[in-house]
């Protein structure tokens, strides 16, 4: 990627420099297409997952009723302000029966937006089943796969998705680049206009280095898939230890299929902000809810949609394991968590 930052060309220029930049972009497009199980000709690079989600909903959803699950990322929920929210069960999984009924009752065409993996709980949604239902009713299906890439295998056809969102920085790539994969032939109205790049789907001089980094990250993410069972073992070790130390510890979403790296753990009576700070003092970075709602502390809409009372939702943190996480680190998290819990119960 550093080498690509040195690429002088604008990929749209016809001279040799421009063509070198173009070749780098197209190489990355092929790698991202492999990760998404999509056709490289139908991948549009964007400035990230948020733009890709907005492009999908505005570009393919205009004139369609937008239906989104209640646990979608803000960039989907906000882009579908008058869309009906589809409920999830207490494990965070979309209720397919409700989807079927809502689509049957919807007049005119619809677009269903369903994430493959939730960013707060790691819960995997039944996207292929939802897509089959959507298509039966003549609706399109958009899948936000930002959290899924590199953690579960992706295949546009197998998922039945008409549109699929990816982001580089969630798979170890650089921030500032994402992609929207489309089912070949799908008509899309662009959000950014002027310049004709990305086959007119998305104007703007390409972020060449970012795209090259994305391509490399996509290759590495594919390789990561093989390591997921090892990561799951570490996550299970963590959750088993926490449950053993404090029986009844809430593990949100654990009753549903989940990706290997995410654990959403509650500590009764200890606000998540306090947990974040305490973990930080122990040298461990965890997160309270999702990172996007910068600054403002608001209760998680995901946990609320799962039926959790606000008081309980406010005491959950997300622990995400990386590819480099070790057993020793898991044990440190367990110790820090146990120590914090003991301190707080002594104080209470």
């Amino acid at each position: 990627m550093a080498a690509a930052l040195d690429l002088v060309g604008n990929p749209s220029s016809v001279h040799a420099e421009g063509r070198a930049a173009r070749a780098a972009v197209e190489g990355a497009r092929a790698a991202v297409a492999v990760l998404a199980g999509a056709d490289p000709a139908w991948i549009a690079f964007t400035s990230g997952g948020t733009e890709a989600n907005n492009l999908a909903l505005a570009g393919a959803g205009s004139g369609r009723r937008i239906l989104a699950s209640a646990v979608e990322h803000d960039s989907v929920l906000q882009a579908a302000p008058d869309g009906a929210l589809l409920p999830v069960d207490r494990h965070g999984v979309l209720d397919l029966g409700t989807l079927d009924r809502v689509l049957a009752a919807t007049e005119g065409p619809a677009l269903v937006s369903l994430m493959l993996v939730n960013n707060e709980t790691g819960v995997i949604q039944p996207v292929a089943e939802a897509a089959a239902i959507a298509h039966r009713h003549g609706a399109l299906l958009h899948c936000d796969a930002v959290q899924a890439a590199g953690r579960v295998p992706l295949d546009l056809d197998a998922l039945g998705a008409d549109l699929l969102t990816l982001s580089a920085h969630k798979i170890g790539g650089p921030k500032g680049v994402g992609a929207l994969a489309l089912r070949p032939g799908l008509a899309l109205s662009p959000l950014l206009r002027g310049g004709g790049q990305e086959r007119r789907m998305r104007a703007g001089t390409e972020n060449v280095a970012g795209i090259v980094g994305f391509g490399r990250a996509a290759e590495l993410a594919l390789a990561e898939l093989d390591r997921q069972h090892a990561v799951a073992a570490l996550r299970d070790r963590l959750e088993a230890a926490l449950s053993a130390r404090a029986p009844g510890t809430p593990l949100h979403g654990a009753g549903a299929p989940r990706v290997a790296n995410t654990s959403c753990v509650g500590m009764a009576g200890v606000p998540s902000e306090v947990q974040v700070m305490a973990f930080d003092l122990a040298g461990i970075a965890v997160s309270a809810g999702s990172a996007c709602s910068s600054g403002k502390v608001k209760p998680s809409h995901v946990l609320a949609a799962m039926g959790l009372p606000a008081a309980e939702a406010a005491c959950a943190v997300r622990i995400s394991l990386g590819p480099g996480t070790t057993e020793a680190e898991i044990d440190r998290i367990v110790e820090a968590w146990t120590a914090l819990r003991a301190r707080r119960s002594a104080a209470a």
Partner: peptide
């Protein structure tokens, strides 16, 4: 302008 801001960029 929502979206994670790319710090390096």
């Amino acid at each position: 302008r929502p979206g994670t801001v790319p710090v390096a960029l």
